[in-house]
Amino acid sequence: MSEIMISLKDINKTYKSMGDEVQALKSVSLDIYKGESVSVMGHSGSGKSTLLSILGALNPPSSGLVEIDGIDIYKLSQERLADFRREYLGFVFQQFQLIPYLTAHENVMLPLTTTKRSNREKREMAAQVLERVGLKNKMNRLPNQLSGGEQERVAIARAIVNAPPLILADEPTGSLDTKTGDEIMELFQQLNKEGLTVLMVTHNPDNTKYLGRTIVMKDGRLSDERLNLN
């Protein structure tokens, strides 16, 4: 068995909504190993996006332990947590979430902005990653000059430019047609084969065939878990 990348122990998350307490996660425990690819499925309100935000070092749990690569991340200071996100995590958000006034190249360079690399190195790294996702010839275009699939590729390029060990993706194919969605999933599959750990929240059962394990959430708990045969 390989090393553990993500370890969740007895995670609870409670929100206050309209004066009432809502328990979004209830005693969730989970281990994800390095090099694994995992899909998290479940209906709206099942707690999967809350789980992703906790794993993304964006939203501390009400109780429980979150370790990524052996680091108890919520013991880090706010500033160290920001550094951790930059070094360890690659985010692929819903709806791509590209910065509209930056070109594809500049969007991909964003995670490198606050690093100490030279500008030339940053430009070269971003260009290499864009070439990797097949967009080198469109790197100077603004997001609104790209198709949905192309924007998704830029978002993936931005997530991997810093070579993080863990990719977190939230509904990455939700707004794409089937063919483009499949191409994007193949790209995630390829990244996983190269050693990246991938955790993806998805509604689309077809996506699970590209990923090694599926976790199903219901009412804030893990209700099912299965290995995918691919």
């Binding site: 993304g56 500033e79 920001a82 930059r86 979430q97 910065i99 964003l110 606050t114 810093n162």
Partner: peptide, 16 residues
């Protein structure tokens, strides 16, 4: 708001 959220999520510190 959302744009600032993206910056923070990809590792920008408050100072940035």
């Amino acid at each position: 708001t959302r744009e600032i959220g993206i910056f923070r999520a990809i590792g920008f510190r408050k100072m940035h």
